[in-house]
């Protein structure tokens, strides 16, 4: 088990390096010159050249990347070229609200998806099943921004039930809960469909397995058969899907945060990219990728917990 964990951790290193390299190169191919951005519209050519030297932009790419990694290793992600604030500081302030949003989206959407999928599989072909399928198809098809806009228009603007801009405070305050409700419903809403669909397929598959027949032949109640024998075994593919979908969730977080002006990493990323704030954009890419890698590590750990056959591997 420990060996498995270490193996996975070691595998994450090259992935992270790849992310850093691609993030770095992406910033190079953008046609905007950071030195010009920083110098402002009225700067002379000499000033721009001086800034370029200061930022190390006159060095060869490999040197620049090496320098970048060296600074990164020391926890230095540079400063924003727009307002001189250290990137680490901005990230530190936005990472909390993003985690908050992610968790409050997942905490209701995953259980709901699993519940719907299980009901659909158990009552296969019935009205319940068809209802579940309709919900999940709708959930898969509706884009995040659209759901967000609809919620803003009706719940936030027309009926004025809940606030729809910004973060009212930490999660444990009433204002915090009110302000996170709509973003969390939006972001979680697109997650219910895929989870329900995958759960339904996986549970259906397990329900026809020989060992489920054995469980029934032992005289177990249907509740135990479904929970301990069907759902428990179906969790492996469902967890896989959730791990894969986390990538989409991160993308969805960027959109949701923008739509609801939620002060998270996603909105920071959008702001940094549109204003050509390269160090800031790179910083947000690192944080989001790191999130993805960590979630997948957790998923790998869950496999081992869910399926004893994985533990030996």
């Amino acid at each position: 088990m420990l060996r498995y964990l270490i193996q996975r951790l070691l595998l994450a290193i090259p992935v992270m390096l790849g992310v850093l390299l691609i993030g770095f190169l992406l910033m190079q191919v953008v046609p905007t010159d950071p030195a010009t951005v920083r110098a402002g519209p009225s700067a002379t050519a000499e000033v721009v050249a001086e800034i370029r030297r200061d930022l190390g932009l006159d060095q060869p790419l490999t040197t620049q990347f090496g320098l970048y990694l060296w600074r990164l290793a020391q926890g230095d992600l540079g400063v924003s070229i727009i307002n001189n604030v250290p990137v680490v500081q901005e990230l530190g302030a936005t990472i909390g609200p993003t985690l908050e949003l992610m968790l409050s989206s997942l905490v209701w959407s995953i259980p709901l998806g699993i519940l719907l999928g299980t009901l659909g599989a158990y009552y296969r072909g019935s009205l319940i099943d068809r209802g579940v399928m309709a919900i999940s198809v709708a959930g898969v098809s509706v884009p995040v921004f659209f759901l967000g806009l609809i919620l803003i228009w009706f719940v936030g603007f027309k009926w004025q039930w809940l606030p729809f801009t910004g973060r009212g405070g930490p999660l444990w305050t009433l204002e915090g809960l009110q302000s996170i409700a709509l973003p969390a419903i939006t972001l979680g809403g697109v997650f219910v469909g895929p989870v329900a669909r995958m759960t339904r397929t996986a549970v259906l598959d397990v329900l026809s397995a020989d060992h489920v027949r054995t469980a029934r032949a032992k005289g177990l109640s249907e509740r135990l058969v479904v929970l301990r024998h069907a759902l428990r075994n179906a969790m492996v593919p469902v967890v896989t899907l959730i791990g894969l979908q986390i990538g989409f969730l991160l993308g969805g977080a960027v959109v949701t945060e923008t739509v609801f002006t939620w002060p998270g990493v996603g909105r920071l990323a959008v702001g940094a990219i549109t204003s050509s704030d390269f160090p800031m954009a790179q910083g947000t890419i690192i944080v989001l990728s790191l999130g993805f890698i960590i979630v997948n590590l957790i998923v790998d750990m869950l496999y081992a917990a869910l399926d004893p056959r994985m533990r030996a591997a």
């Binding site: 020989d210 027949r213 054995t214 032992k218 177990l220 135990l224 301990r228 024998h229 428990r232 399926d307």
Partner: peptide, 18 residues
Amino acid sequence: SLNPVHSIGDQIMEAMRA
């Protein structure tokens, strides 16, 4: 016919507990 994710002992005890 045996559930791969539960231990042998658990599956036997489950039959008794039922």
